[in-house]
Nucleic acid binder design. Structure first.
Length: 195
DNA sequence: CTCTCGATGCGCT
DNA sequence: GCGCATCGAGAGA
């Protein structure tokens, strides 16, 4: 596979080497980039959620299993999982090696390759191309193949430094759809960008 | 092996 | 607002 970019400005591993909530906030306004079939698709991350380890009942890493093992590994890797029999969700592994944690990419505002996204999600209005975790993976063509991809080195999927988002435009809420104990439900670990 | 149900999205009401 | 699609991970037996 020839590398058609000289040196894409991927965020370095140190960027991911933080606790999940801090990383979730920091990922807002960064650029998610996907190259498939030589086509570049990108957008600014607009919504994230942090997931922890054994102290977070809502997290896959609440228990260490073969699937969640990657969340215990070094930061900067993609954790892609299959859900509800038909959707994929993309996470970026956070925190140091041995410290479990990840950030779910819940929403992206499309920038480049919008026509490709439309073709991947036929009949969907532009505003809803990637405004949900499953939609992000559909619009960006992200599947199981990209699980464990190194976001700091992959030529297929990475995150670049974007304009970021000022604190005045960040909204923080509890996470969506978590069913754990009160601690898991009440944690303010969802970050979204207000327009 | 079997059973449950989910870090969801969509279409219909 | 509500029900359904659809299947793999994880747990219990």
């Amino acid at each position: 596979m020839p590398q058609d970019n000289c040196d894409p400005p991927r965020l370095p591993r140190a960027f991911y080497d933080r606790d999940p909530a801090t990383l979730a906030r920091a990922l807002l306004g960064q650029r998610l980039v996907r190259i498939a079939d030589g086509q570049r698709v990108s957008g600014l991350i607009s919504e994230t959620e942090a997931y922890g380890g054994p102290d977070d009942q809502a997290s896959h890493a609440f228990r260490r299993t073969p699937r969640s093992a990657i969340m215990y590994g070094p930061p900067g890797y993609a954790y892609v999982y299959f859900i509800y029999g038909m959707y994929f969700c993309l996470n970026a592994v956070a925190a140091a090696d041995g410290q479990p944690g990840a950030v779910l990419i819940r929403g992206v505002v499309p920038q480049e390759g919008i026509t490709i996204m439309r073709s991947r999600r036929p009949g969907v209005a532009d505003a809803h191309l990637a405004d949900g975790p499953g939609k992000v993976c559909q619009a960006f063509g992200i599947t199981r193949n990209l699980n464990a991809a190194d976001l700091t080195a992959s030529s297929e999927l990475w995150i670049e430094a974007g304009p970021g988002v000022p604190a005045s435009r960040v909204v923080i809420t509890p996470r969506i759809g978590v069913r754990g104990d009160a601690a898991a439900r009440n944690r303010l670990w969802r970050f979204l960008t207000r327009p």
